[in-house]
Simulated scan of single mutants.
Amino acid sequence: MNHLEKLENKSIYILREAYSQFKNLAMLWSIGKDSTVLLYLSRKAFLGHVPYPLVHIDTHYKIPEMITYRDALAKKWKLNIVYGENSKALQEKKTFPEGNANRIECCKYLKTEALTNTLSGNWPRYRLNHINGKYEIDKNTEPYTGVIVGVRADEEGSRSKERYFSPRDRNNDWDVGDQPPEFWNQYKTDYVPGTHVRIHPLLDWTELDIWEYILQEKIPTVSLYYDQGIGKRYRSLGCYPCTSPVVSSAKNPKEIVEELKTGKFSNIAERSGREQDKEDDGGLEQLRKGGYM
Rank of each mutant, 00 (worst) to 15 (best):
Y164N: 08
K278T: 07
N2R: 06
W77L: 15
N172F: 13
N100T: 13
A101M: 01
K6E: 12
G194L: 09
Q186G: 06
Y13A: 11
Y226M: 02
G229R: 09
A269V: 08
I63P: 05
V257E: 04
S244I: 05
L202I: 08
P253A: 10
D154K: 08
G291R: 09
S272G: 03
E212K: 15
V197L: 02
F22N: 08
R288W: 04
A74N: 13
V50K: 03
F46W: 10
S166R: 12
H196T: 06
L119A: 03
D154A: 11
Q179L: 12
P253M: 07
T141C: 08
S248V: 08
P245L: 01
C107D: 06
E275T: 14
K218I: 03
E279S: 01
L39F: 10
L54R: 04
N102G: 09
N252I: 01
P241A: 02
S42N: 01
N129M: 09
H3Y: 09
P143D: 05
Q228N: 14
Q21A: 15
G283N: 14
K261D: 00
K264V: 12
D175P: 02
W211C: 07
P143F: 02
K78E: 13
I214Y: 03
F183W: 11
L237V: 03
G146I: 05
E275K: 15
E212I: 07
R70Y: 00
A72G: 02
G121V: 04
A114W: 11
G177I: 01
G231T: 02
R103Q: 13
N2Y: 04
K278R: 08
D209W: 04
K278S: 10
L224M: 15
F22I: 02
P53M: 03
Y234E: 06
K23C: 11
K161M: 10
S244W: 03
F96M: 07
K188W: 01
T221V: 15
Y164M: 07
T116D: 05
R235C: 05
Y191A: 13
P220E: 11
E98T: 10
L260W: 09
V149L: 14
Y240Q: 13
G283I: 10
G229P: 11
D190T: 14
K76Q: 14
Y225R: 00
Y13N: 12
G133H: 05
E65R: 14
M1T: 02
G48M: 09
N185C: 09
S166V: 09
K278N: 07
L119V: 07
F46G: 12
L224K: 10
S42D: 01
P97H: 10
N267M: 09
T141Y: 00
R274F: 03
P241F: 01
K88N: 11
L38R: 08
D175T: 05
P201K: 00
D209H: 09
K88Y: 12
H200T: 12
V192M: 10
R163D: 08
I67P: 01
T145C: 02
S166E: 10
T262W: 03
W184L: 15
Y52S: 07
Q276D: 12
E162P: 02
K188Q: 14
E279D: 10
Q228V: 00
D277G: 04
S223D: 12
N102C: 06
Q286K: 14
T145S: 05
V149I: 15
K261M: 01
Y164V: 15
R168A: 05
T221N: 08
K10R: 15
L15M: 04
